[in-house]
C-alpha cells in the first residue's frame, strides 16, 4: 500500500502516540496517521520528511515498527532547530509527515547469504527495520552479524533489544564505542575493529552499512579486503534535502539524487564519487 499523498509537497498530519527518550540527544516518535485508518507501509531503509509546525522539515529514517511500539517509528537526533522542535513534542501532539520516500535495503536479494550489518551512531535507526525483516524469515539467511559503533556508551540506542536479537534470532552483536571511562565493560575501538571478531564467509556475504561517510569508507575498505564483493555492499548517503522527490536538486551526489535514487546505494554504483572532497 502506498500512503495517499494528495500533493507530494503537502504533509499529512500524524499523531505522536508515544515519545520515547533513547539517549541524552536522541529520541523516537511512535506515529499514527490522523486521517488514515490503513496500516502504514514502508520498506526498511526508507525515510520520511517530518514537519514541525512553523519551524521546518527534516528527513528522518524510519526505524520501526518495533516491539512495544506499534506505529511508524522515527528515531531523531537533536542537531538543529527542526529536530529541537520535534524534541519538544508530547504524546498526543501533531506532526506533519510526507513519505515514505527513497530506496530500501534489498532484503529479498540477500537470501542464503551471510549478512554483516554495520551501524555508526544513529545509523542503527534505518537498519533496525532491516534486522526485523531478516528476523521475520531468519531461516533464509546464514550468519547475521551486527557491528555497532558509537561515540560513547551514553550514545548507544536500542541496547535493550540486543539480548533478544542474540538469543531469539541467533545473531552476533558486537558493540564498540570510540571512547569510554573505565566503568564500561564493553569494547572500545572503532567499529571496523569488530569485523574480525564475528563469523561470516566474506565470499558469500551481503553488507548493509549506515553511518558517517568516513566510518562507511573504512568499513567498505575492510570488507573489500576480506573479499566481500562491491556489489553486495550497501551504503546510505546523506545530503541536504528539501523536497525528497527529486525536484529541489539539493541532495545531488554525482549523478544520483539521494532522495529518490538513494538513500541506500549499492557501493559500486556510487564508488566513483564516494570520498571525493566536497562532491
Amino acid at each position: 500500500m502506498k500512503l495517499p499523498i494528495s500533493d507530494p509537497m503537502t504533509p499529512e498530519p500524524y499523531i505522536v502516540k508515544q515519545f520515547i527518550r533513547e539517549t541524552h540527544d536522541t529520541f523516537s516518535l511512535d506515529l499514527f496517521p490522523k486521517n488514515i485508518s490503513d496500516s502504514i507501509a514502508f520498506q526498511p531503509g526508507q525515510f520520511t520528511m517530518l514537519y514541525a509546525f512553523g519551524v521546518g522539515e527534516v528527513p528522518i529514517s524510519i526505524s520501526g515498527p518495533a516491539p512495544m511500539q506499534s506505529g511508524l517509528i522515527q528515531t531523531i537526533r537533536k542537531v538543529g532547530k527542526v529536530t529541537e522542535a520535534l524534541d519538544q513534542l508530547k504524546n498526543g501532539d501533531t506532526v506533519g509527515l510526507r513519505g515514505p520516500f527513497g530506496s530500501a535495503w534489498p532484503i529479498s536479494a540477500m537470501k542464503k547469504r551471510d549478512i554483516v550489518v554495520m551501524a555508526g551512531g544513529i545509523g542503527l535507526a534505518p537498519l533496525r527495520p532491516a534486522l526485523y525483516a531478516l528476523f521475520d524469515q531468519r531461516d533464509n539467511f546464514g550468519e547475521i552479524a551486527l557491528l555497532y559503533g558509537a561515540r560513547s556508551p551514553k550514545d548507544l540506542i536500542f541496547t535493550n533489544e540486543f539480548k533478544t536479537w542474540q538469543e531469539k534470532f541467533g545473531i552476533q552483536v558486537k558493540v564498540t564505542v570510540d571512547t569510554a571511562d573505565s566503568d564500561w565493560r564493553g569494547n572500545v575501538g572503532v567499529v571496523t575493529t569488530s569485523i574480525p571478531r564475528v563469523d561470516f564467509d566474506p565470499k558469500n556475504t551481503v553488507a548493509m552499512i549506515c553511518g558517517p561517510e568516513i566510518m562507511m569508507k573504512y568499513s567498505v575498505a575492510e570488507l573489500k579486503q576480506l573479499g566481500v564483493k562491491e556489489d553486495r555492499i550497501h551504503i546510505t548517503m546523506e545530503r541536504n534535502m528539501k523536497c525528497a522527490i527529486g525536484f529541489c536538486g539539493h541532495c545531488q551526489f554525482g549523478p544520483a539524487f539521494i532522495c529518490k535514487d538513494g538513500p541506500i546505494f549499492q557501493y559500486n554504483q556510487v564508488k566513483h564519487f564516494f570520498g571525493i572532497r566536497e562532491i
Binding site: T10, P13, D93
Partner: peptide, 17 residues
C-alpha cells in the same frame, strides 16, 4: 506557497494550497 498551517490548541491543521 506550498501550504498553510494553523495552530488549534496543541494541535495544528494543514491547509493544502
Amino acid at each position: 506557497r506550498l501550504f498553510r498551517a494553523n495552530l488549534k490548541g496543541g494541535d495544528f491543521e494543514i491547509i493544502p494550497e
